[in-house]
């Protein structure tokens, strides 16, 4: 039980979350966001906290296949839905094709935005398997990157979609 700023009691509620094909029982207060529960209760830290204000997209996860800013989504509201985090798409032993392409194109520098970028790109490619450059731009428009200037990330997504015919941006 926690005491919030105005002194009233908020009780924990219990529910299950389905993350990357596994079920996790959660006990948390209603105000906990999905990002925090994923990272601190479940221990999946691939999803990042950037702005915590629904601006940067570092916290992007898939909810029933659709990208959602997990910093601004109540964890309890995600019960009964399928949540996919970056850990559910690829790992160090078996990289997701988008991860391979980002490495090949130099689309990763500090790497903080990368999980969110991959989640948004994955959602885009699921509904549009051969997007134009503009469509990739729109698909990634909720994700900020302060290192790469985006061109190499977009190259990587186009490459992943087309299987290797994209000329790298110099």
């Amino acid at each position: 039980m926690t005491i919030d700023e105005q002194g009233s009691e908020s009780e924990s509620i219990g529910y299950d979350l389905h993350v990357n094909g596994q079920t996790y029982p959660v006990e948390a207060t209603l105000d906990r966001n999905l990002l925090g529960v994923l990272r601190t209760e479940i221990g999946l830290t691939g999803t990042k906290e950037g702005c915590d204000d629904c601006e940067c997209g570092a916290c992007m996860v898939l909810l029933d296949g659709q990208p959602v800013n997990s910093c601004s989504y109540l964890a309890a509201q995600a019960q009964g839905r399928q949540i996919t985090t970056i850990e559910g798409l690829g790992n160090a032993d078996q990289l997701h094709p988008l991860q391979e392409c980002l490495l090949a194109h130099g689309g990763v520098q500090c790497g903080f935005c990368t999980p969110g970028m991959i989640i948004s790109a994955h959602a885009l490619l699921e509904r549009n398997s051969s997007p134009s450059r503009d469509e990739v731009g729109i698909g990634l428009s909720g994700n900020l990157c302060r290192c790469t200037g985006y061109a190499k990330i977009i190259d990587a997504v186009l490459d992943s979609a087309s299987n290797g015919s994209v000329e790298p941006t110099p």
Partner: peptide
């Protein structure tokens, strides 16, 4: 009522307005 929470949750996290004690999710 809460649907996507893009106003309600963001507002609560920014401290503009407290999250109500009782919510009904209408997004399903």
């Amino acid at each position: 009522p809460i649907a996507g929470g893009t106003d309600l949750v963001v507002g609560a996290r920014q401290g503009n307005k407290r999250l109500p004690a009782s919510l009904v999710a209408i997004d399903r």
